[in-house]
Design a protein around this nucleic acid. Structure first.
Lengths: 300, 300
DNA sequence: CCTGTCCTTTGCATTTTTGCAAAACATCTT
DNA sequence: AAGATGTTTTGCAAAAATGCAAAGGACAGG
C-alpha cells in the first residue's frame, strides 16, 4: 500500500535522534505514536528500517537508503513551506541557527529576541557549539561563522566586521607586572582556546599575537571571559562583549588590534526559500546593528 | 503548524485532476476526505491553494508555487519507495504504462497478466491513448512507444522490432478486383489512421506505401482492425495482431513489408528506482517474447 | 546490590479522521 | 422544462490514530 508521506517525516526524526523518545520530543508527539508510525512505514515498505532496542533505534541498510531519499523529500517540503511564507505577514514555525558561542552568547540573544517580538509564532533555536555546524546534515537552518567556508554547496554572505583586543581586569593589571609590550605578555597567564580544539583558524588569535602558551584554556568563549573577569589572566575578547564585563579593560590597543568578520552561511538549496530568506535578512541586519551598538559603548 | 506531508500527496492529485471527486478516485479515498485534507493544508500553510467551485478546483498562484516543490517531494518519495523494492521478492503498489493502442490491445494484456501472476500485490494500469504520453507530467510511470523520443530528460531503450503488412479478409479479396501491385490499391477502400491525428510519424504507414486517401479511418488500431475484419477494406496490420484475426491475410508481401520498433521510455529521474527497474525489465522481456511468439504463428 | 532514570512497548480511553449519505448546486441531455 | 448526472459540502456514525499510563528492561551511579 502507498506509504503515508508524513511517516517519512517521522522516520527522518528517528533516524537523526536514534530514539523514539527523542524524536517524539522533537516532533512534539508521543513516543508511542512515533513507534507506531515507524511500524506502519515498515509495513507499507515491507522493509525493516531500524534495529530496535532500548539503547536506541539504529538505521539498517534499507533504512540508510530510505534516508537518502527522505532527505530529498524533506528539502522539497521545506522549500514548499518556504515558498508559502511570502504570503504571510509574520514568520512561524521553527528556525535553528548554529553559531560559535561568542556570538551565540553575546549577540544572538538580543537579536533573536527582537525577531521573536516581531514574529510571535516563530520559534528560534540558537545552537551554540564549539565546532563547525554541518549544514549539509541540516544540523541547523543557517549558521553564523567567522571563517567563510569555501567548500560545499553553501551560500555565504558577510554580515559585519568586529574588533578584538587583549583584555584584563584592572585589579589584575595593578597586581602584576606592567604590560607595555607584547613581549611583556610572556610573564603573564594567558587565557584562550584549547589549542588542539580550535575549530576555526580565524579564532586562533593568540598565534597571531605571538603567544605560544595558554595556561587557562577552554573551548567556550564565555568560560574564557568569565575566567578573565575573575582576574586570573589576560585574554583576547571581542569588543562587543566588553559592555557585559565592565571590569575588563583593553590593553596594548596601539600594538594589538584584531579584526574578524561574521558570515551567514546557508544551504544553497534554501536560496529561494522566502521564509528563510526573510529570517536571514532580519538576522544579518540585527547582528550588524547590535555589533555597532555594543562597540560604540566601548572606549577607544 | 507543520503541514502534514501526506496532505501534499493529496494536494498533487487534486492539482492534477482539478477535482476532489477525481482525485478521490485516483487516491481511493472519499472526496469529502480529499476536501478536508486540502482545507487542512491550506490552514497550515496559511495560503489559498485552489479556486473552488463545483466545476472544478483550479490552482491559485500560491498553489502553482507549491506544486513545483510538491513535484520534487513526490519524486523523492517515489525514489524512496523504489529503493525499497529490491528488498522485497515481489513488486507491489501501482504502476501505469502508457502505450499506443496497438500494443496496448494486442501485447500488453498478455504480458501484464504474466507480470501480475508473478507479483500478486502489484496493480498494473495500461493507459491506452492515441497520443504521446507525457512522462514529464507523470501521466504514466513509463511508456511503450514506436518512435524513440529525442527531447527531454528521458531514458529510452529499444525493446524489439516488429513487422507490418497489408491485410484484408479472404472474402474481401475474392469479392473485389485482384490486388497484384501497389497501384491496384487505388481501386480499393483503404482503412487507416485519421491523417491529421497521427501522433507519431512512424505510424504513418500508408504514406510510406504511397496511399494518399483513407476512406475508413480511426485513431484506434483496434477499431481499424475490426473494420478490416468486417471485410470493408484493406489496411496495414502488425503481424502480431494477425493470430487474433485469423480471417485476415497478408497481401503484397513481396512488395510491402514494413518494420517498426517498440521502445520503452522512462523518466530519467527513475533511473535508480529499483522497483520500476525490475518492472521495466520484466515488461521489455515480456513484450519481446510475446512479439516473437505471435509473429511465429503467422505464415510468411 | 539497590535505586533512580530513561528507554520501548502495550492496553485502554480519548480525540481525530474518514466514510457514508444527503443536501444543494451546476451542467447536460432529452 | 424536467430529469439525469456529477460536483462540493456538511452532519453523523464508524474507524483509525493518538495520548496517557503502566509494565518491563537496560544502564548508570551510589
Amino acid at each position: 500500500m502507498t506509504p503515508n508521506w508524513d511517516d517519512m517525516r517521522v522516520f527522518l526524526a528517528v533516524a537523526r535522534e536514534e530514539s523514539l523518545s527523542a524524536a517524539g520530543r522533537q516532533l512534539k508527539i508521543d513516543p508511542a505514536t512515533v513507534g507506531r508510525r515507524i511500524a506502519r512505514l515498515e509495513a507499507s515498505l515491507e522493509a525493516p528500517l531500524f534495529t530496535k532496542s532500548q539503547q536506541g533505534y539504529l538505521l539498517t541498510a534499507p533504512g540508510e537508503r530510505l534516508m537518502e531519499h527522505g532527505l530529498k523529500a524533506e528539502e522539497a517540503m521545506r522549500a514548499a513551506v518556504g515558498a508559502m511564507a511570502g504570503t504571510s505577514k509574520t514568520l512561524s514555525g521553527q528556525i535553528r541557527i548554529g553559531a560559535p558561542d561568542g556570538s551565540a552568547n553575546y549577540l544572538l540573544p538580543q537579536v533573536c529576541a527582537k525577531i521573536s517580538d516581531a514574529n510571535p509564532d516563530l520559534d528560534i533555536q540558537i545552537l551554540a557549539l564549539p565546532r563547525v555546524i554541518n549544514l549539509s546534515r541540516r544540523e541547523a537552518d543557517m549558521a553564523v561563522t567567522v571563517s567563510a567556508p569555501t567548500a560545499g554547496s553553501l551560500l555565504v554572505q558577510k554580515i559585519t566586521d568586529y574588533k578584538l583586543h587583549l583584555v584584563a581586569t584592572r585589579d589584575y593589571l595593578t597586581s602584576y607586572p606592567a604590560i607595555r609590550t607584547i613581549q611583556d605578555l610572556s610573564g603573564h597567564r594567558m587565557i584562550g582556546y584549547i589549542p588542539d580544539m580550535i575549530f576555526d583558524r580565524e579564532l586562533d588569535y593568540l598565534v597571531d599575537i605571538g603567544v605560544d602558551r595558554v595556561a587557562l584554556a577552554s573551548n567556550s568563549v564565555s568560560v574564557q571571559l568569565r575566567q578573565a573577569t575573575l582576574g586570573t589572566g589576560v585574554c583576547v575578547a571581542h569588543d562587543f562583549t566588553l559592555p557585559f564585563h565592565p571590569n575588563l579593560q583593553k590593553i596594548l590597543t596601539d600594538q594589538v588590534s584584531l579584526t574578524r568578520s561574521f558570515h551567514l552561511v546557508r544551504h544553497q538549496g534554501d536560496q529561494r526559500n522566502e521564509r528563510l530568506n526573510r529570517f536571514a535578512q532580519a538576522l544579518s541586519q540585527g547582528i550588524r546593528e547590535e555589533v555597532e551598538r555594543l562597540e560604540a559603548q566601548v572606549s577607544p
